[in-house]
Design a protein around this nucleic acid. Structure first.
Length: 272
DNA sequence: ATGATCTCCTGAGCGC
DNA sequence: TGCGCTCAGGAGATCA
């Protein structure tokens, strides 16, 4: 499941081969994704990719043509992938968009269709991240911002971390891992996180995300990068999907509970 | 207003 | 062997 580190890995991969290239053609499946696009994706034909940006889990493809600009936003949802391909490669099922570029193709595939592709009109900015808080790895995500948001929320701290409006980019994996690293119980209300644990939790979030990027992200089931390679951060997960296994710190058994309908993995002995 | 729950979707895994 | 059930969760919509 792509979270910030996986999307950043995809962004870097796409940037290496796509920036400066003209989109010569666009093929689509016609199947509806999570959100409808504003303009037809085919309208990207003839536009040049000038850059790839990311805010949290959203990718932005900047396009330019004859002095004008526009943007394509993309979200990978649960099972979305961007892959480089040769024109003769077999097209896998659930391939929803293919960008034809000189010498190769870029294909967006998403079996469960939780992702989206939105092409905005010429000159318009993308609004996908309008309700989002600062990206967790950006300078805007300060310790002060985090403290203010945290102390103002009565939600369980695990649910708080997943709230993209508070700070954006954390998904289920890294919420569990950051809480474990900071030794904070996921069941504790955000506003009741001990004062002395706020800074450790802030740094745990930043560290775990950055370390995962360095490892190419985490692959549980579906995620692969633009070359089809899985991320290897799974080997460094302390608690996620480790129910029943001993905690690395105290040898107690890692537990799994459900919060807001999602699995939370933690050590009830270490995390208080 | 805020937090909790539901919904969308497909494929993997499991039990009978 | 094969069918049907459950589960996975990002995030917008809806409910409490």
């Amino acid at each position: 499941m792509p979270e910030l580190p996986e999307v950043e890995t995809v962004r870097r991969g796409l940037a290496t081969r796509l920036v400066g290239r003209a989109i010569q053609g666009v093929s689509t499946s016609g199947v509806a994704l999570r959100k409808p696009t504003v303009c037809a994706l085919e309208d990207m034909e003839g536009w040049v990719v000038t850059g790839l940006r990311r805010h949290a889990k959203i990718l932005f493809l900047d396009l330019e043509r004859e002095g004008q600009t526009r943007v394509l936003s993309a979200h990978l949802g649960m099972t979305g992938t961007f892959r480089f391909a040769e024109s003769g490669d077999p097209v896998l099922p659930h391939t929803h968009m293919t960008l034809h570029v000189e010498g190769f193709e870029v294909r967006f595939r998403d079996p469960r269709r939780f992702g989206w592709l939105t092409l905005y009109p010429v000159g318009e900015a993308a609004t996908d991240a309008a309700g989002y808080g600062p990206d967790c790895l950006s300078d805007a995500f300060t310790q002060e911002h985090f403290r203010t948001q945290l102390t103002g929320s009565k939600a369980p701290v695990k649910a708080f971390l997943l709230d993209q409006a508070k700070q954006a980019g954390i998904g289920n994996i890294y919420a569990c891992e950051a809480l474990y690293r900071a030794r904070v119980s996921p069941r504790r209300k955000a506003c009741n996180v001990p004062a002395g644990k706020v800074e450790p939790l802030y740094h745990a979030i930043r560290d775990v995300l950055q370390e995962s990027i360095d490892m190419g992200g985490t692959t549980l089931n579906d995620y692969v990068d633009t070359l089809g390679d899985p991320g290897t951060f799974i080997d460094w997960l302390d608690v996620f999907q480790r129910e029943g296994q001993p905690c690395q710190g105290c040898q107690a058994t890692v537990k799994r509970i459900v919060q807001s309908g999602r699995s939370t993995f933690y050590c009830s002995n270490c995390q208080r």
